[in-house]
Design a protein around this nucleic acid. Sequence first.
DNA 1: ACCGTCAACCGGCGCT
DNA 2: AGCGCCGGTTGACGGT
Length: 274
Amino acid sequence: MGFEDVCCTGLGLGLGRQDRPQSRLQSDHQEKKKKLCLKYDNSFPCLTLGPSEDTYQLAAKINDAGKGYGESTDLHRQASSLSAVSSFSNSSIKKERDLCGEVEVEVEVEVEIERVSSRASDEDEEGNSRKKLRLTKEQAVILEDSFKQHSTLNPRQKQVLAKQLNLRPRQVEVWFQNRRARTKLKQTEVDCELLRKRCETLTDENQRLQKELQELKALKLATPLYMQLPAATLTMCPSCERIGSGGDASSKTSFTIGAKPRFCNPFTHPSPAC
DNA sequence: ACCGTCAACCGGCGCT
DNA sequence: AGCGCCGGTTGACGGT
């Protein structure tokens, strides 16, 4: 019995993988990505610091001035340390609108800013490179703290956190999704390790019992007939210390080999031989 | 060059 | 239909 045996039980941890028609999926994926990149090739990092109103004014300034790349770098300097390099994705506007009521208005403002401004990053002219965002330490700490309090977010919490971190709500949402996935993966690894250890223990136990069985079989061959009776068949009367087969009153012998073993509680029912 | 990490994305599923 | 979440995947990036 090995680890595989255990893993084939109902205790599976779901570590297998599903095969999917990769090629079709892949091309589909690439196609959609292309479209997205073309559509949002003017998106830029969200560099807001203060309330969205201020943000809007800043964006309006930029818009009015008709400035592009260089200006956004200046804006970058005005931003808080948290805002540094936080938004490079090309996510859709629809997904930005993941909030309701007045919140949605604020989000739309941010999207608007993304549209009117150029990027202050090393994206190429077509804007179709996917830049890797690294959250700052401060952002990560705040997100972790928040995750410790609640592993899921309601729209309001998401919005508040996004504002606090100067990220887009979608980014906060994605971070929480990925964080939950990481937690789950870690837990799966822990479970797998526990299962492996349990398997080892059971294997050892099995070997020990097999060995014991062999010894008992060997002993059986080397002992007289009466000693070969199953242990439950023979009882010792505590008062007379004679071996009896259990409750057969007609029996005159001190022990019998009964066809059916009977169980006798020597403490409540003394043997008939007494 | 290779590998691990992680933000971002997509499709699917369940819920309302 | 819209939304949120999940599993799987991609691609950028940093470390070796």
